[in-house]
Amino acid sequence: MSTTMHGPTAFSTNSSKKARGLCATSTERRCITNCGTTGTSAADQFTPAEWYELLFKANHMEQLITNHWQIMGEVDKIRTGA
């Protein structure tokens, strides 16, 4: 079974044999995040405000990692020493 959610806070658990072998192992969790676009959605047409908006969205990765790490820590037996 493979479940993948897209979005700014997407987080997936992949338990298929293929995925275990090629990507996410039993000690890894997968996360997909794109910081999206702004305004007209054109890569080369943006205002200064939209410049800052996209970079601000890119900064979201910091919080995404920190939050997921905190949640993963609740079940990570190695980290918790359980």
Partner: peptide, 15 residues
């Protein structure tokens, strides 16, 4: 247990 960031980046529309 570690995190894999499958895919990241800006996602604009097709030019």
């Amino acid at each position: 247990m570690k995190l894999v960031v499958d895919e990241w980046g800006a996602r604009h529309h097709t030019d």
